[in-house]
Design a binder for these strands. Structure first.
Length: 779
DNA sequence: GAGTTTGAAACT
DNA sequence: CAGTTTCAAACTC
């Protein structure tokens, strides 16, 4: 602590007072009318060198390390002004500083700002009122601003999240003492507060909203983080676990993390880099704490990540080789089709945020963050002719589903249950498992594509740990866990000869690049062969515009509100082309209809069909007792079918069938399991975006077969205008294949993104130039 | 995990 | 477009 004193003295000494006046802090203060007068009077005094030294030396924490000097200085510098008057009154500065404080106290905000620059305080100040340029930043980069704010030196100071979501906590006097100790205390408090918030947020819509926002923001940070990760893949993993840990920590009981300033975790290092102070500890320091990282995730890692982003950039500027760009390139891109990005994201978010419940909002938020980020998205979105679509679907969605499912199991109620609602799931605050799972699910959204896989695996592992911790270790559970693990990796192909460039390949068919978990040989379905992939895809689409379209379509007329039963009929959905099963009786996953959880239809040419999901001869499901598989011959009763399907004009608008039958269906292909491919299978190229949160929110689909899971509520009447404009005419295009099989209209390459409104899921689409708008010319 | 079965996709 | 081949997932043991 003694060492710090010289530094702080020296540093300010090198800075002319004029610099202080130009500093953001002053700008900010200037904006505070009460302060303005005082400031003009005492600039020099308030920031003269001696004033910095004394207080700090008194309160400096013994734990201070040289590495944190930079940060210390900044913070000191920030809070020295206000703190001095109250606690270090000395000299003539007193009057000035005090005056500042008093003036500041005239307004709550002023007080917060003027008082010690604790993270909480500062954060609030920043969020509430940002001076000049920072205000702009606030608009453009709210996330960043929430976690750090500019220091006088234009450096970034980490700001705990507490104030952001729970401003009232700022008032804690304890946090206003700006010694090192108190600072650390504040950090801990912030962490606690955040956890607290997370808990309380589950019960409070408003709080929940904030919480969601927080998580979303965190997601942003976390998502971005990998791109600037300077360390190796090993560290990448660390990050992944860290993200999970973060979520876990948020929900778990408060834990101490007193090493905020001392522990050179992400925060410390990044901050220091950011500040660019000598003695800054390299990132390596963060590694030393791999184990500690989890506990410190909150006060440190989170904000750090935010800082790191900037830091990395700045560091690069400074000539340090942190390889941020190369890291970005390292991120594997898996999607073949990409999200449109901001527009869609915004659209989704907005539409969902207005009327949705907390969970809805959460989903929306998460969704919002899940979509467009990652360099992958950036890179690929630029690809011409690519549709808009995010195909993490399977991964995220399925994993979510798994999470939910397992959670239910954890509760010991039923293996494949239908949680009341995602919200309920999230708000069942008393259940740690739920929390953990829920967050795990949510958290997956924060991760970039390939990281998602890793994260999901981590999440799955975490889930396993959690479930085991709670005594959930039955063989069945273990199996489910393993399934979950499998699902976490989304699609995995095992192609040997197709080079993963044919529809045989599930990854390719799903619009995904193959990833490590795949066991394919001579795989060309990777970013390295991007052109080949796209070209091949184009060829396939030219041959069959529906090749990448969802395999299961639903009749729009059956779409209804969630609560309605109108669309619970399997017959309301059908396989795009119908199956051609001969031996499986359409009772195995060989059958795409069965796999998709839909009944065989007149489109099918199956023999000995026993598909109990529906009747291709037009028998309404209502007439079917699903517990008793009903056998029916493949009678191509087109007339009846036409009647039944006259609403098929919206093949891709699928009601979320809160299908009650599927859950009890004796032959549900998935029996609660969500194969990693589930989503992708259905709509890969359909580009239906089933994000984790969506899955999470639509957990009632978990029991549904993979296809059906893809086809969730997309009420046409509620389809956003922007979407409607892109949607097929409601009149629908019924196309008939040469073999008398009706073909669903092409999806126009719309990469639907989904959102929720009034409890229903909307799929937002964007036009993909690559997909033909012409009626499908089914083979 | 190896082998078989199955049916979609691809090819002719 | 029907028939055949190829292919990889699903399934069985």
């Amino acid at each position: 602590m003694e060492l710090n004193t010289p530094n702080k003295n020296q540093i300010p000494a090198t800075n002319p007072l004029s610099q202080f006046e130009d500093s953001p802090v002053f700008n900010y203060i200037n904006n505070l009318s009460p302060i303005e007068l005082v400031k003009s009077m005492h600039n020099g005094q308030a920031f003269n060198l001696p004033s910095f030294a004394s207080p700090l030396s008194v309160f400096a924490s013994p734990q201070l390390s040289s590495q944190s000097d930079a940060r210390s200085f900044i913070r000191r510098y920030q809070f020295s002004e206000p703190s001095k008057p109250e606690f270090f009154q000395s000299k003539d500065e007193n009057d000035t500083s005090k005056g500042v404080l008093e003036a500041a106290q005239l307004t709550g905000l002023s007080v917060e700002q003027s008082e010690c620059f604790t993270p909480a305080n500062s954060s609030k100040g920043v969020i509430t009122k940002l001076p000049g340029e920072h205000m702009e930043s606030a608009i453009e980069e709210p996330i960043a601003l929430k976690y750090y704010c500019a220091s006088p030196d234009d450096n970034i100071i980490m700001v705990p999240l507490k104030a952001i979501i729970e401003p009232e906590m700022v008032g804690d006097p304890n946090e206003r003492y700006c010694s090192r100790e108190s600072e650390r205390y504040c950090s801990r408090e912030s962490e606690k507060d955040l956890r607290k918030i997370c808990r309380t947020g589950q019960n409070e819509d408003e709080a929940g909203c904030d919480w969601v926002a927080l998580i979303s923001d965190v997601a942003d940070i976390l998502t971005l983080e990998p791109s600037i990760d300077e360390e190796s893949d090993e560290k990448q993993k660390l990050v992944d676990s860290g993200t999970i840990s973060f979520i876990s920590n948020v929900l778990q009981a408060p834990q101490d993390n007193s090493n905020d300033s001392k522990t050179p975790n992400y925060a410390g290092s990044s901050q220091q880099r950011e500040i660019g102070e000598p003695g800054i500890q390299p990132v390596e320091s963060g590694e030393q704490n791999e184990a500690d990282q989890t506990p410190s995730v909150f006060p440190g890692t989170l904000p750090d990540k935010a800082v790191v982003n900037d830091a990395a950039a700045k560091v690069d500027i400074r000539g340090k080789s942190y390889q941020s760009s190369s890291k970005q390139n390292k991120i594997r891109r898996r999607c073949l089709v990409f999200e449109m990005g901001a527009h869609k994201k915004k659209l989704t978010f907005e539409s969902s945020s207005s009327t949705l419940s907390q969970s809805d909002r959460m989903g929306a938020n998460i969704e919002k963050h899940a979509t467009p980020r990652t360099d992958k998205g950036k890179t690929l979105s630029a690809l011409p002719g690519r549709g808009i679509g995010l195909h993490l679907n399977a991964l995220t969605a399925s994993s979510s589903g798994k999470a939910v499912k397992i959670e239910t199991l954890a509760s010991g109620k039923q293996e494949i249950s239908q949680p009341p609602s995602p919200a309920a799931h999230m708000t069942s605050g008393s259940d740690p498992v739920s929390k953990s799972l829920a967050l795990t699910t949510v958290e997956t959204d924060f991760v970039p594509f390939d990281n998602k896989d890793k994260v999901m695996e981590n999440a799955a592992k975490t889930l396993m740990v959690v479930t085991e911790d709670f005594g959930i270790s039955s063989p069945k559970m273990k199996r489910q866990k393993m399934e979950f693990l499998g699902a976490s990796s989304c699609k995995r192909c095992n192609c040997k000869r197709s080079k993963c460039l044919k529809l045989y390949c599930e990854c390719f068919a799903a619009g995904l690049y193959c990833i490590e978990p795949c066991s394919c040989l001579e795989c060309s379905n990777n970013p390295a062969h991007e052109e080949t992939v796209l070209e091949t895809r184009k060829q396939i689409e030219s041959r069959n515009p529906l090749a990448f379209a969802p395999k299961v379509i639903r009749n729009s007329d059956s779409v209804s509100e969630f609560g309605e039963e109108t669309n619970k009929t399997p017959a309301s959905a059908r396989h795009k082309r119908g199956c051609n099963c001969k031996k499986s009786s359409c009772l195995k996953k060989y059958c795409e209809c069965f796999q998709g959880g839909v009944g065989c239809s007149s489109y099918c040419r199956c023999e000995g069909c026993k598909n109990t999901f529906g009747c291709k001869n037009g028998v309404e499901e209502n007439d079917i007792k699903w517990e008793e598989p009903k056998t029916h011959e493949n009678t191509s009763n087109l007339n009846l079918l036409d009647i039944i399907e006259k609403g098929e004009d919206h093949p891709d608008l699928i009601a979320p069938s809160k299908d009650s039958r599927s859950p009890v269906h004796p032959q549900i292909p998935f029996s609660g399991q969500l194969s990693g491919s589930s989503l992708c299978d259905v709509g890969p190229s359909t580009q239906i975006m089933c994000r984790p949160i969506q899955r999470f929110r639509t957990n009632f689909f978990y029991h549904l077969p993979k296809y059906e899971k893809h086809l969730q509520v997309i009420p046409e009447d509620e389809t956003p205008e922007i979407l409607n404009s892109n949607c097929l005419p409601t009149s629908g295009v019924k196309s008939v294949s040469p073999n008398s099989k009706r073909v669903s209209p092409p999806h126009h390459g719309f990469g639907p993104s989904t959102t929720w409104r009034r409890g229903r899921k909307l799929i937002l689409r964007s036009v993909s130039p690559s997909t033909s708008l012409n009626p499908p010319s089914e083979q």
